[in-house]
Design a protein around this nucleic acid. Structure first.
Lengths: 167, 167
DNA sequence: GACGAGATCGCAGGGATAGTTT
DNA sequence: CCAAACTATCCCTGCGATCTCG
């Protein structure tokens, strides 16, 4: 048996999940965590049935996106979707992303301009953010992946987006 | 804080879900159970009570640090935190640290440059100090450990920092 | 600062490793 | 002479932004 410390509120929550008198913490937690830890196979089925990444699925299958042949526009559309999916997480990921000299994303167009010699900032529509655009496709892809990963988005979803993004 | 008992296996499972060094059980469980984290205010109060190394814990769990993939930047961030934790102690540790020829830290960039042939001094942002950067990872780690040790920082904390620092 | 997108290529920085000193 | 400690050369990668092409 191991002992762990948890805060009062969480303790109350766990205690409230007791199924029968005298059920121990391990038993409760195992039950609760099982629900959240389905097998890989199950996860995929669930993902297909009802993903909690609905905004991306919607975007990826939308005509606006699929009909959009330019990398840049798909790039902006994706960033916009990411922001709207979770602005707070996006903000964190965005501010911590940079190259050796250039800042890749910021709310301030000027900041991007002054962080390099010819960064060509572009507004991310539907968003207070701007992105650098003077990069090759590989770097645009890296930016997307990096943001998604920092936002804690699943590997599977990232791959899906990557596939849809590339030509 | 409440204490609960769980079996070994479950403990290992939970420990394995750690997202960043020093994350506590409550935080991990809340993430897994999809419960909201307690408010920042609450967390800080607890943190202050629990550890007098708050600045390091803060840094190590900050997004700026955890999202930073380059060794050099993590190195600088740590030194900056160490200085701000206690400038006086840092000063003592810094001036007494050196190799056989090179001075590792100084307030004066030039001093570092002239103490070796290609030391590549880097400014420690938020600090009047500079560090040598032309070293391998092992030496950077040694510099961090050495400074912390000289500053009288606990073994446990040093280990925690080391873990967070290395790739 | 006004054509825009992005591939290509050159340069800089990071740090492993070969080499030197103690 | 060997080992350990330390240095800094130099290779390699990652990044920037010029330049080409639509």
């Amino acid at each position: 048996m191991k002992t762990i410390e948890i805060d009062e509120e969480l303790y109350q929550f766990i205690a409230g999940q007791t199924k029968h008198i005298g059920e121990n913490a391990s038993s409760i937690l195992r039950r609760l965590l099982k629900i959240d830890q389905p097998t890989l196979a199950k996860q995929n089925i669930t993902a297909q049935k009802e993903s909690h990444y609905t905004p991306f699925n919607d975007l990826l299958t939308s005509d606006t996106f699929t009909n959009e042949k330019s990398i840049i526009n798909r790039f902006i559309l994706l960033l916009s979707a990411l922001y709207n999916y979770n602005p707070a997480l996006f903000a964190i990921a965005a501010t911590s992303l940079h190259g050796s000299k250039r800042q890749y994303l910021a709310k301030d167009k000027q900041l991007l301009e002054t962080s390099g010699k010819n960064t060509k900032p572009r507004e991310i529509i539907g968003t207070p953010y701007w992105v650098i655009s003077n990069t090759n496709t590989a770097r645009k892809q890296y930016i997307i992946e990096s943001i998604m990963s920092d936002m804690g988005i699943s590997e599977t979803m990232i791959n899906q987006v990557t596939n849809a993004f590339l030509p």
